[in-house]
Amino acid sequence: MNKLSQWMGTITLACLGSITVPASASDDAKFDDYRSALEDGNPGEFWIDDGEELFYAKAGPKNASLDRCDFGLGPGVLEGAYAQLPRYFADTDKVESLEGRIISCMKNLQGYNDKQIQEQFLDIHYLNAAEEDSRVSPLSQIATFIASKSNGQPFLIQLDHPKEKQAYELGKKTFWNRMGAMDLSCANCHAVKGRVLRGVELPIMTDPHRAGKVMGAFPAYVNKDGNVRTQWWRNERCLLAMRLPWLKTGSPIDTSLILYQVKKAAESKQEIAVPGIKPRA
């Protein structure tokens, strides 16, 4: 049963009724109050419960569950696995993000083909990314469940495999490359101290401390659209603003951008605390 749809409406209203969201992020202190006030009743917790049900449920052409999925620490080992993603997987010969790996396991263990993955999981995942029309994506639910199994651990990104090094360099290149109809790079907005965009203070993603705080909060509950959002979603939202085409979940650029930012996060040794809370997109 989907606990989320049952409870979300009432709980969200009850928790958020008395809290005013500050209009500008320049006042970070206000946000800290806001986040701690929500800490007691993070509606994102429902994604963990629903994700767990989906993860252990039999599904797909092979009528199998995902419980033997190997996230890098062995089949079915979930504790601490997210903290070491993205990483290289020999069976697919690719560096994979959390969502990318879930999709690989859906194919390998549950027998879905590419078309079924697109129609049954990615279409809804992509439409779900809209602020205006936010929906619940099973892929986000499963991702939130797996990620929560690394809570309390810092990211640990080794880049031991040559393909991991390559992906990291691709992420760096993408982050620093000016492109899109705005002529901007991610770095133009996220690597220079003190920049403000239309009243919003921009987080420095090259600063390990800030990256640790940001990346360790995803998947995060975004209050403005009442939905839990993954690292892919965050990158896609900024690429959308740069007027670039649609970023495919689990694609090389998606995985590389995540790896680049998570590597920065790992240097801070900040602990993962999922689902985080974000006041707005």
Binding site: E169, K173, W176, A191, T206, P208, K269
Partner: peptide, 12 residues
């Protein structure tokens, strides 16, 4: 806090 690596020259 770990020391931030400066990628501004390398840029991938």
């Amino acid at each position: 806090m770990a020391h931030a690596v400066d990628d501004s020259k390398d840029r991938g």
